[in-house]
Simulated scan of single mutants.
Amino acid sequence: MADIAVRRVDLGYFVRPAAETGTGQCRVEPVLGYLIEHPGGGRVLVDTGMGRHPEVDAHYRPRRVPLAAALRTAGADLDDIDYVVNCHLHFDHCGGNPLLAGRPVFAQRAELALARGADHTLPELIDHPGARYEELDGEAEILPGVVILPTPGHTAGHQSVLVTRGDGTIVVAGQSHDNATLFTGDVLAQHSGVGHYPAWLHRILAFDPRQVVFAHDNAVWAPGTSQVSAP
């Protein structure tokens, strides 16, 4: 049987204002989804792009790649998607969900509760016509070799997807970290025992990941960049 494939889906970019970057400068960030093609279980799309709202557009100046076009570039169509996973339910990760109505959407119960509250996301992206949630309370294997793992921090219900292939595990980490450099820092802290790192990091590293990919960074983390012993 063929191995599980993971393909990046380019959904555009937005401009994060200086007040949100911590650097005093604005920052342009990609918006990336990931298409998981399982030879025995269908296609899973992790994140679906940016929702639309006048205030959102004025604040973040997004440049969207329509979901259908982005999927075609990755070798799929909207009708090919069997399952959706949102790493969390902010507007820039679930914007295309209404286009995939009827498909099971895997989300942590805690995240869905937040999204149905005030000021978490765009409400019309959550309980849209045809929305169908598979609510999770923790870790779950949704297909053989495809595991959803809670990785709270950015939001209380944030989750990542771990894909175990013949050549190693690929972690689709979403916005567990804003970029690969921050992930590297936490891995080094965990290895050295110096500093702080998320309590769930040991669970990801137990899968001995070959690559870790992110929602807002084109860079890919690989273990060869972080195997540093404590002094």
Rank of each mutant, 00 (worst) to 15 (best):
A5N: 12
A5V: 15
V6A: 00
R7N: 05
R7P: 10
R7S: 15
V9E: 02
D10I: 04
L11R: 01
G12P: 07
F14D: 01
F14K: 08
V15F: 03
R16I: 12
R16W: 13
A18M: 06
A19M: 07
A19E: 11
A19P: 13
A19D: 13
A19V: 14
A19H: 08
E20N: 04
E20D: 01
E20V: 07
T21F: 05
T23H: 03
T23K: 03
T23A: 01
Q25F: 12
Q25G: 09
C26D: 15
R27M: 09
V28C: 10
V28Y: 05
E29C: 08
E29P: 08
E29N: 10
V31H: 00
E37K: 06
E37A: 11
H38F: 06
P39N: 07
G41E: 07
R43I: 10
L45S: 02
V46W: 00
V46F: 06
D47C: 13
G49L: 01
G49E: 07
M50N: 02
G51W: 00
G51I: 06
G51L: 03
G51Y: 01
R52F: 12
R52P: 13
R52N: 13
H53C: 05
E55P: 11
V56H: 04
D57A: 05
D57L: 05
A58F: 10
A58Q: 09
R61V: 12
R61G: 14
P62L: 04
P62V: 00
R63N: 15
R63Q: 14
V65D: 04
P66E: 03
P66R: 10
A68D: 11
A68G: 10
A68T: 10
A69H: 13
A69K: 13
A70P: 03
T73Q: 14
T73V: 15
A74D: 08
D77E: 12
L78K: 06
L78E: 05
D82L: 05
D82I: 08
Y83W: 13
V85S: 00
N86L: 09
C87E: 14
C87V: 15
C87M: 11
H88P: 09
H90L: 14
F91G: 06
D92F: 14
H93E: 11
H93I: 07
G96D: 04
G96L: 02
N97C: 08
N97H: 09
P98N: 02
P98F: 02
P98I: 03
L99R: 10
L99S: 07
L99V: 10
L100Q: 00
A101I: 04
P104N: 08
P104K: 04
V105M: 08
F106G: 01
Q108W: 04
A110G: 14
L112E: 01
L112R: 03
L112Y: 11
A113N: 10
G117A: 09
A118N: 15
A118T: 15
A118S: 14
